[in-house]
Nucleic acid binder design. Structure first.
Length: 430
RNA sequence: GGAGAGGUGCCAGAGUGGUCGAAUGGGGCGGUCUCGAAAACCGUUGAGCCUUCACGGGUUCCCAGGGUUCGAAUCCCUGUCUCUCCGCCA
């Protein structure tokens, strides 16, 4: 949701921002609607003011018991009725028209992100860790013998179809360990408050964080109208919807370990093997609510928090800043963190950390009160910290051994009964 | 699932269809008093939109959306949320 005032004050900058997204200029159309809207509001309010003034006199006449005067004014005020209704309808219609346009346009890209058309134009900002040298051909996660025992796609297909998985034994324990490790790290070391939220939400929440109205086909909806969240960003961000927060309460840092549901419409044929792209997966999500002056620094901080998980797991990764053509609808700037997958011989997205500035805050009407000042919109940020299933893949592929076993990263061993290996038969070993 | 009650300002809590953005109390902020503090007293204390260089003016908002009325926080309808009781249940 854009700020109409900002567009009024600097239409050129607005159009320039859209242009960087590859979109046509909109400001002149928008300002026309804005003018029409303001004229309509003005007309309606003038009529209302007249009515209210006369209406007060009606009350006074009634109180005095002046029946003739009362009847005269009564008729006068009554005559205004249809006129006011019409003018109000018009003002409302123009306001809706304006909001529809402002709601449907994507956020403007931050000034410091690269121009580009698609993911090929993203720019790597750092690369951490070196891919391990294998003395054998590394396999994809579902081919590693130890993992294959615990990744059951056949049963999942029987239950639910494609893009689902049943996890068994050591694989599920590893999956569980990862989620717990991530959540604990963000809570104990990174200052986030752990949160458990519903995964079924109403329309308003999906609008607030920007999934609706444009991306309805990406999410699932229940028959009675709830949406299954595609990410806990929806619930964490919307947890402050409609509020005026104390400046002292900021930044608010929340994290949640949740199920996520995505229809993956439009990705038919992509990543069909293994559990890289699923309709249902787990993610540990980070969200921060900050003042405008802190949000840029918070994005760097949040990205570090996500990277820290991979550092601890000793998984090589690279961090890229998304170009204007790839950054998401509601976001100003995004860092993707891509983990090295030796089985695929490539880096694959495992986290995405973004700052929305006040884009979501406007949709949700979330503000804070600066010291002694008027309420202002907060800035919101969100990031994966990390996608649990994809991290499991990265752990499997990077720690696979020639005999088909998997070495368990040290930081996870406390969660694995102290064991250090998943043996080729799928059991845990010292 | 059944039955009932209710949603008013930062909080508690009044509110007769008519000068109600809303009594009163508490809290917050400012001040008086005090060596300082407490107490007491005085004042102040919501948000959005339109308009204005500004001071200011106008308008909307008493859960949300409709409706009745010359006029709605107050009446009616729908939705929604909360609470109580019964039933069921992880």
């Amino acid at each position: 949701m854009h700020d109409i005032r900002a567009i009024r004050e600097n239409p050129e900058a607005f159009d320039a921002g859209l242009a960087r997204r590859g979109l046509a200029a909109q400001s002149s159309d928008i300002l026309k609607i804005d003018d029409a809207r303001r004229a309509a509001i003005h007309a309606a309010e003038t009529a209302l003011a007249e009515r209210n003034a006369a209406s007060k006199q009606v009350g006074a006449a009634k109180a005095k018991g002046d029946e003739a005067e009362f009847e005269r004014l009564r008729a006068l005020v009554g005559a205004k009725k249809t006129e006011i209704a019409e003018l109000e309808d018009q003002a409302k219609a123009e306001t809706h028209r304006l909001n529809d346009v402002l709601m449907s346009l994507p956020n403007l890209p931050a000034s410091d992100i690269p121009d580009g058309e698609d993911e090929d134009d993203n720019v790597e900002v750092r690369r951490i860790g070196s891919p391990r040298n294998f003395s054998f051909a590394p396999k994809e996660h579902y081919e590693v013998t130890a993992a294959a025992h615990g990744l059951d796609f056949e049963t999942a297909a029987k239950l639910s179809g494609s893009r689902f998985v049943v996890l068994r034994g050591a694989m599920n324990r590893l999956h569980r360990a990862l989620g717990q490790f991530m959540l604990n790290t963000h809570v104990d070391e990174n200052g986030f408050t752990e949160t458990w939220t519903p995964v079924l939400v109403r329309d308003e929440a999906m609008y607030g964080s920007g999934q609706l109205p444009k991306f309805a086909e990406d999410s699932y909806r229940t028959e009675n109208g709830w949406w299954l969240i595609p990410t806990a960003e929806v619930t964490l961000v919307n947890s402050v919807a409609g509020e005026i927060l104390d400046e002292g309460a900021l930044p608010i840092r929340l994290t949640a370990h949740s199920q996520c549901f995505r229809s993956e419409a439009g990705s038919a044929g992509r990543d069909t093997a293994g559990m890289l792209r699923q309709h249902q997966f787990e993610k540990v999500e980070m969200v921060a609510i900050t003042t405008p002056d802190q949000s840029a620094a918070e994005l760097e901080r949040m990205t570090k928090c996500a990277e820290g998980i991979l550092d601890a797991l000793k998984i090589p990764y690279r961090t890229v800043v998304l170009c204007t053509g790839d950054v998401g609808f509601g976001m100003r700037k995004t860092y993707d963190i891509e983990a090295w997958l030796p089985g695929q011989n490539s880096y694959r997205e495992i986290s995405s950390c973004s700052v929305a500035d006040d884009f979501q805050a406007r949709r949700m009407n979330t503000r804070y009160r600066p010291e002694g000042g008027k309420p202002e919109f907060v800035h919101t940020l969100n990031g994966s910290g990390l996608a649990v299933g994809r991290t499991l893949i990265a752990v499997i592929e990077n720690n696979q051994q020639e005999d088909g076993s998997i070495t368990i990263p040290e930081v996870l061993r406390p969660y694995m009964g102290g064991k250090s290996t998943v043996l080729p038969d799928g059991s845990l070993g010292d």
